[in-house]
Design a protein around this nucleic acid. Structure first.
Lengths: 195, 195
DNA sequence: CACTGACGTCAACAGGCGTTTACATCCACC
DNA sequence: GGTGGATGTAAACGCCTGTTGACGTCAGTG
């Protein structure tokens, strides 16, 4: 049993990961500007200076949070049929994975003022909307359908935002179970072409 | 011609108003934490110290922005039928009043960390959702319908947010005209009871 | 075992923040 | 027409921010 190093006292990769997780939570909950590097370092249980060492700057750390969140979202996306979409959105918005997934969604709406972060953000949004529009039968020449898909994405983000930032009941405490039916009606009302 | 004072060199009410408008724009665009009192004062063309004088603090100024925005929204609300709701939402989200209305919507999602501001925010959200649910036939005993109304509100806020914070086309540039049809389908899909 | 590079700590810095204080200036009223 | 309160100004304060540099300390290698 020469396991490589389950918990080394000094482990750069682990420290990086701890910082990333703490930062994602803080950025998603409080926003970029309201979050201090000392908050993040304390949450992660590491020294403040290591943020600059591993991520160059606070902005670099935010960008790293955004790109890893986007990567994970892309990986988790997979293909689906239009009928399955509401279930997916409900799961993500409800945060069936405790704490992880809705954080990524809310993070998408957080702005650091950095231009590159904005590009990352808008890139994933566009790709999600294009995907959804394609599932609804979009062939690239129907701007109205794309608009409708983007509205559906906006609705999902709005739900995630409201759930994480307010205690508006029953929305704030609704589980994926209770969200999927309304979301199905929302999506189908928005995207199913009536002949 | 002893007109009272069209433009006095010193006018507390006018200064207060200038500060409120500048602050609302900044808070909505950049968020509470990222906005500095010097930014606001410069935009308004007044001295920084006057913020403390007229609003006690930056937080007091934010709260004042929120309450006046809420007042204006309540005044503009009026009664409507369920069929008219999409048009109203489309106008607000599109910002038919250039710059004014969507600012108020986005402001609702901005957080200052102040508890009282949170209460104001959630109060107006709840009242909007209750209103919408009532229009859809809510009698107070159907939590699912209220949930659906809250989802509709969340969707509206998500659209306003995405429009003001990203350049996701065609959504970002869509006018009220182009938004009203999709919104009608969204609302009716979500709220119209199928027997 | 000594050494070297990676990893972590500490303290300080320069700048920006919100706020306050002391002081000018204006305007309405007696 | 002076006087006092209202309005605006300027500078400074103390605090907190992100970042950095110099300094310990650990772990793997020869």
């Amino acid at each position: 049993m020469t396991s490589p190093a389950p918990t080394r006292r000094r482990d750069a990769a682990r420290t990086r990961q701890l910082l990333l997780e703490a930062a994602r939570a803080r950025f998603a909950d409080d926003g970029y500007a309201a979050t201090t590097v000392r908050d993040i370092a304390d949450d992660a249980g590491v020294n403040v200076a290591l943020i600059s060492r591993y991520f160059r700057s606070k902005e670099g750390l935010f960008e790293a949070c955004l790109t890893t969140a986007v990567d994970e979202m892309r990986r988790a996306a997979g293909s689906a049929t239009l009928a399955e979409v509401p279930q997916r959105i409900a799961e993500q918005a409800a945060g069936i994975d405790s704490g992880g997934i809705p954080q990524r969604l809310v993070l998408l709406l957080r702005s650091s003022g950095d231009a590159r972060a904005d590009e990352i953000r808008i890139g994933i949004l566009r790709s999600y909307a294009d995907n959804l529009a394609t599932l609804a039968g979009w062939t690239g020449d129907d701007d109205d359908l794309l608009l409708r898909a983007q509205i559906a994405i906006a609705a999902s983000l709005g739900i995630a935002m409201l759930r994480s930032k307010t205690r508006l009941e029953p929305l704030a405490s609704a589980g994926a179970q209770e969200l999927v039916d309304p979301l199905s009606d929302l999506i189908s009302g928005l995207l199913e072409r009536r002949a």
